[in-house]
């Protein structure tokens, strides 16, 4: 126990040292006027980051940009979660439905999410809807895929056990297939979170008037490297927080699968 604690502190110290080292090297380089012409130092970026919470970039302050992007992410991701799990599980469990849906799914699956951007903008306009749809597509594919495999690989003897205990077809789906697929589903959600986050950033980069992706792309248009770096910093932080959030959700959902391991 004590040893583990010591190890943890060692790790934290190492992390602090390496971040400090990175910032130091960066700062030293930024003192060189030639370097600082193209790349601002770390403190300039941090300063700009904090200032942006008060001073708006474009029409919004940072917090608003963050919330705008997050709401786009959430709308698409939640829809993808609900529909993706439903489709994946039914496709994995009912063979007739699988035979019907799987070819259509496989037809669309190889197309990367980012390739949908122009078509979706063409169909849905440049408003919010297009972003929701893109986030949806990004998360949907991996969620369906994983839920499908989850339902497909439910242990035969577990199914037999349930049948011998007298459960009917409907009960089989709800009391066996769904819980047995939870680990696979949450693996799908982990991937889905990341690809949804990537989709919303990409959509904002290509066409938008607000959001963290927009901050980055207008930084490029205005030759403002500081703004680009602030944008990337925010993207990293939110992405990290979302990943941690979904890992927490997994821990709760898969408690029965993880404890003691």
């Amino acid at each position: 126990m004590l040893e583990r604690k010591a190890k943890m502190w060692q790790k934290i110290a190492a992390a602090a040292v390496s971040f400090a080292l990175l910032i130091l090297i960066w700062q030293l380089a930024a003192m060189n006027p030639q370097f600082s012409q193209v790349m601002p130092g770390p403190f300039a970026v941090l300063q700009k980051f904090f200032v942006s919470f008060v001073e708006p970039i474009g029409k919004n302050v940072m917090l608003q940009h963050m919330l705008i992007t997050l709401s786009r992410w959430a709308a698409g991701f939640i829809a993808a979660t609900i529909l993706g799990i439903a489709l994946g599980l039914t496709m994995g469990w009912y063979r007739g439905f699988e035979a019907f849906m799987r070819p259509l799914f496989e037809l669309v699956r190889p197309i990367p999410t980012l390739a949908w951007i122009p078509l979706v903008i063409l169909w849905c306009g440049i408003g919010e809807l297009a972003k929701y749809v893109l986030v949806f597509i990004g998360a949907f594919m991996s969620i369906v895929q994983n839920a499908y495999h989850g339902a497909k690989s439910v242990d035969r003897t577990i199914v037999n056990a349930a049948r011998m205990l007298g459960c009917n077809d409907r009960q089989m789906f709800f009391t066996i297939v769904i819980p047995a697929s939870v680990p696979a589903i949450s693996a799908g959600l982990q991937i889905g979170v990341a690809s949804a986050w990537s989709s919303v950033v990409a959509a904002e980069l290509v066409r938008s008037s607000s959001g963290v992706g927009w901050i980055v792309v207008t930084g490029q248009q205005n030759n403002n490297m500081t703004q680009i770096l602030v944008g990337i910093l925010v993207i990293a932080v939110i992405g990290l927080l979302l990943a941690l959030l979904i890992r927490r959700v997994e821990d709760v959902l898969c408690r029965w699968n993880k404890r003691g391991r």
Binding site: A161, A162, L165, C167, T175, P179
Partner: peptide, 26 residues
Amino acid sequence: RGMVFQNLAIFPWLTVMGNVEYGLRM
């Protein structure tokens, strides 16, 4: 006809109580 399986086949997501009462719940 009940069965006790070689590789257990108890439902890992249910507690001991949940497993035992499963048939009656169904």
